[in-house]
Design a binder for these strands. Structure first.
Length: 939
DNA sequence: ACCGTGACTTGACTGTACGCCG
DNA sequence: CGGCGTACAGTCAAGTCACGGT
């Protein structure tokens, strides 16, 4: 039962205790201090939809370990099961660098260099994309302003024809996919099916040159290296291959392929750099174990949710679903539809119970811990928690206690006078504050944008008043304020570490109480308890509102949400009061205020990612994506059949679904005119997709955050033909999918699988890709090499999802420094070789650069030195390649949002890789719910 | 069926702490 | 031991999607 013992291995830890912060390491314990104790409770239930997914929670113990590896689906085994954990021992971090070398991805990754492979192996090259092309529309024109590299995605799609083959499928959706096939494909990586789509596909490769230089966005700038750049520059996507469209093939092939993500097929280049850093994460999470509080109880609590089926009846139901899933292998026979039903049933949930009892212990507990942990649980506590979960309809919590929010300090006037028309101007503190906000942004790209300047000036003038001497922006000189600011920064930098430490501690002390909330008796971290300070709005891309004043938020703007019985947080600003205090337990926010830039929108204060509430919904998200695995085959058959449907709307739905599936595009909601002009799948404009005969499509558009998506892919001919039709008769600027919007698309998807929406495809493709790549490419080797495999898979996913990052300003300098070193090493090598040749002939070595005589080494010694140097050279080449490779790829986003952590945890357990090498401290906390996964878990 | 919220997830960027290297 | 570079943690913008009202 509930005892938790502190176990060294991460797994164990986690599992056992939800409540407490898991100690991943023994030593970690100390950390407890920082954090308050956490008791985590089991999870609450979630909203209805989720319920469907509810399975997750339930992982029943049943499943566990016994099953064969692959087969076992999820499961969170109960603690006991976790034995697996043990297997993985924590390994001390290896030194990063040393090892090295490459990972060869043998698999398919094409190295960048390779670009061209042909069909079977194809790689497509990609071009890079600038981050922000100046205008979207023009995008295809290529005008990326700066020379940033573009990224391309090139993914190859599968060939076309096959699909057509039987498509009967649509109707089938309902039915569950045939099990056998499914299983195999899923479970075993081996199956042939698995072959990468790519193999089937041909590749596309094109390189795009970077766009025009004109605008220089800072972010974007890229330094182009020389010619080679092109390769380097290649966008993420380019490196990867694409996913293939494989679905098409005949059914048989189908099956197999289907399961795999398209992406999976992608090849990647493999190298990734090793980072030593990973190791550091090892520290402990913040949560600390409660003191004695019954940990066990806690554990019980939590667990129940996750795994325990037994808990409440409701729970059980949920479990059912889960079981079905997990068991799937076993159950596979059960038709999906049936499973779904089960799920549905599960929905009925009982009302939540309430438990109010708890008091949280404060942080003090913490330490005791690790070992101590084992407590028994207090019965009440745990029970209540268990029940809590979701409870019925939409209830998210039963008791909620928190301290509200903290406000930024009031503005302190510095008195530095800016110049207007050469003369110093007196400004009131309010006026000065806004002027300072602007002055401080002098070094940003915003300062060069007219829209920003105009919006700023408009808002500032309102504060200056009609009669103020300042009228024209052109006559303003903010330099004195800017310089004052630089000085302040400098002063801050100069502070001694002790001074900084003191300041930090003071701040901590002030904020401590705001950092935690007690949800159903469990102390949980609050995400963003600091109210956003006033400033000038920094919208991304060509945002129409950039530069507008984001006014200071006052207590009277804030609505607080708190439990009925909890005391209302005191308003931190004397004389003021909250706008409203609510007690809505169907939502998870603790407070919100209206966004000053767009009053129709809200800014919320939520619990941190490490909270149970968030963890629970995260888990549900991944369970839903896993469920898609059972349906994907039929969904693909379904849309493939509809590529040629006579009904235009149906065809658009089919093609859009295909794009979302293959390219991991976002849904694409409609946007207002007062937002940046970006698009997603449903909002693609005619000019965003260019036909490249015979059957390729070139996508070029600005997506979320105005990040450019540039990718040329080969598609099935019916898709190509359909797109061509959608484009005909339309002008640039018109919608490609004129009969479609996200709600229509999602309601269609929901007919195919309960709870299915467009974004589930992203999660599914990302996670399945990771799972398959890890399983195919992990080979025996040291930890370092395994981590490289992981990073390679992570990179592939990042490319699929188009997760980009700005190239660091110092990138080119760093690279040239590295190449200098490389040249030096090579020179050394030459010299050694010369000496070796001489030594073999019995001659003394040549003098060194300074003319001094070198030591006379034996040929054997020289050979050893040469070998060492060669290793160094290789490692350095690898590092450089990786660095260049990843300069525009952001790995973190997919890790945080798209990759089911259980895949990573299970892989770590199977391969004896310390989880701390993969997840840093915050990720470990965020994914505490996944730590007890069975080592055989497959997505 | 449509629309306007409302709630929550996803995302890139920034400042900074910190480990590494010479 | 000081500068560099990287990885974190934090920030807040920008998406997705559900829902309720008309």
């Amino acid at each position: 039962m509930g005892l938790v013992i502190y176990v060294p291995t991460y797994c164990s830890v986690i599992m056992s205790i939800d409540l407490v912060k898991p100690n991943y390491f023994d030593h970690d314990d100390d950390d407890d201090d920082d954090g308050p104790t956490v008791f985590k409770r089991s999870k609450p239930s979630s909203s209805k939809q989720h319920q469907q997914n509810s399975e997750l929670n339930k992982s029943s113990s049943q499943k566990n370990d016994g099953s064969s590896r692959r087969q076992v689906p999820d499961t969170h085994s109960p603690n006991s099961q976790n034995s697996s954990l043990q297997r993985s021992k924590v390994v001390p971090s290896a030194r990063p660098s040393t090892a090295k070398q490459n990972i060869e991805n043998s698999r398919g990754s094409a190295s960048i260099t390779d670009k061209s492979k042909d069909k079977s192996g194809n790689i497509s090259r990609v071009t890079n994309v600038d981050k922000k092309p100046s205008k979207p529309s023009s995008a295809h024109d290529a005008k990326p302003s700066t020379s940033k590299p573009n990224i391309e995605h090139s993914r190859v799609l599968t060939s076309i024809s096959d699909k057509l083959k039987d498509v009967s499928g649509v109707s089938n959706m309902e039915k569950k996919p045939s099990k056998p096939s499914v299983k195999q494909s899923d479970d075993s990586d081996d199956s042939d099916d698995d072959k990468p789509l790519s193999s089937r596909l041909s590749t596309v490769s094109k390189v795009v040159s970077s766009p025009n230089p004109s605008s220089a966005t800072k972010k974007i700038k890229i330094e182009i290296k020389s010619a080679e750049d092109s390769e380097d520059e290649i966008p993420l996507s380019s490196r990867s291959q694409l996913k293939s469209g494989g679905r098409s093939a005949t059914k048989q092939s189908y099956d197999s392929d289907d399961e795999k993500p398209l992406a999976s097929k992608i090849q990647q280049n493999g190298s990734s750099k090793v980072t030593g850093e990973l190791a550091k994460s090892s520290k402990v999470l913040n949560k600390r174990p409660l003191s004695n509080v019954s940990t066990s109880s806690q554990s019980l609590v939590k667990k129940p949710k996750l795994s325990d089926a037994s808990a409440t009846p409701k729970v059980k139901q949920m479990n059912v679903k889960a079981e079905s899933r997990s068991d799937e292998d076993d159950n596979e026979n059960v038709p999906i539809s049936q499973r779904m039903k089960k799920v549905a049933q599960s929905n009925s949930k009982s009302p939540p119970t309430k438990k109010t009892s708890l008091k949280v212990v404060s942080s003090s507990f913490k330490k005791g811990t690790k070992k101590s942990v084992k407590v028994t649980k207090t019965s009440n506590y745990s029970k209540s928690t268990n029940m809590l979960p979701s409870s019925g309809e939409g209830q998210k919590w039963t008791t909620l206690v928190h301290s509200g929010v903290i406000f930024p300090p009031p503005y302190k006037s510095h008195g530095v006078k800016m110049l207007y028309n050469g003369q110093p101007v007196d400004l009131t503190p309010e006026q000065e504050e806004v002027a300072t906000m602007f002055a401080v942004m002098k070094d940003t790209e915003y300062a060069t944008k007219q829209k920003f300047l105009d919006n700023f000036m408009n808002d500032w003038k309102l504060i200056l008043g009609k009669n103020h001497v300042i009228k024209k922006f052109e006559l303003c000189d903010f330099t004195p304020i800017y310089e004052w600011h630089q000085m302040e920064k400098e002063k801050k930098k100069q502070m001694t570490t002790d001074e900084k430490k003191t300041l930090k501690e003071e701040k901590m002390k002030q904020e401590e109480k705001y950092m935690w909330a007690i949800v159903d008796g469990v102390k949980e971290k609050v995400g963003n308890f600091r109210v956003e300070p006033p400033g000038l709005f920094r919208g991304r891309g060509e945002h129409p509102k950039m530069g507008k004043l984001k006014k200071r938020i006052r207590p009277s703007d804030i609505t607080i949400n708190i439990g009925h019985d909890a005391s209302i947080p005191e308003c931190p600003i004397p004389g003021q009061r909250w706008k409203e205090v609510k007690h809505d337990n169907t939502v998870t926010w603790l407070a919100f205020w209206n966004d000053p830039i767009n009053p129709k929108e809200f800014k919320y204060v939520f619990l941190a990612a490490s909270s149970s509430l968030k963890g629970q919904s995260d888990k549900e998200k991944y369970e839903k994506a896993r469920l898609l695995k059972d349906y994907i085959k039929n969904i693909r058959v379904n849309y493939t059949k509809d590529f040629t449907h006579k009904d235009n709307t149906k065809r658009q739905v089919a093609v859009a679904t295909y794009l979302i599936d293959k390219l991991a595009l976002r849904a694409g909601n409609e946007k207002d005119d007062d937002e940046a002009d970006t698009v997603g799948c449903c909002t693609l404009k005619v000019e965003n997709v260019i036909l490249v005969p015979p059957n390729q499509l070139q996508f070029d558009f600005l997506g979320k955050d105005s990040i450019r998506y540039f990718n040329t892919v080969e598609v099935e001919l019916p898709v190509y033909t359909a797109i061509k039709k959608f484009k005909t008769g339309k002008k640039d600027g018109e919608d490609l999918f004129d009969e479609l919007d996200t709600s229509k698309l999602n309601s269609h998807l929901k007919e195919l699988m309960p709870g299915l929406t467009a974004k589930v495809f992203r999660t599914y493709n990302a996670s399945i890709t990771l799972d398959e790549m890890l399983n195919k490419e992990t080979k025996a080797g040291d930890v370092m090499q395994k981590i490289l495999v992981y990073q390679g898979a992570n990179k592939e996913v990042a490319i699929i999802c188009n997760h980009q990052r700005a190239v660091s300003k110092s990138h080119s300098a760093q690279m040239s420094r590295l190449s200098e070193k490389m040249d030096e090493l090579k020179a050394v090598l030459d010299e050694l070789n010369t000496d070796l040749a001489r030594a073999k002939k019995g001659k003394p070595p040549l003098k060194d650069a300074d003319g001094k005589q070198k030591k006379n080494l034996t040929p054997e010694a020289l050979e050893r030195k040469i070998a060492q140097t060669n290793v160094k050279v290789e490692k350095m080449e690898m590092d450089m390649k990786t660095k260049e490779d990843l300069k525009t790829v952001a790995l973190g986003t997919s890790k945080i949002n798209y990759l089911d952590p259980r895949i990573s945890v299970a892989w770590c357990k199977r391969h004896d890789v310390p989880i701390e090498k993969i997840f840093n401290k915050s990720l470990l906390a965020k994914f505490a719910w996944a730590m007890d996964v069975d080592p055989d878990f497959r997505f």
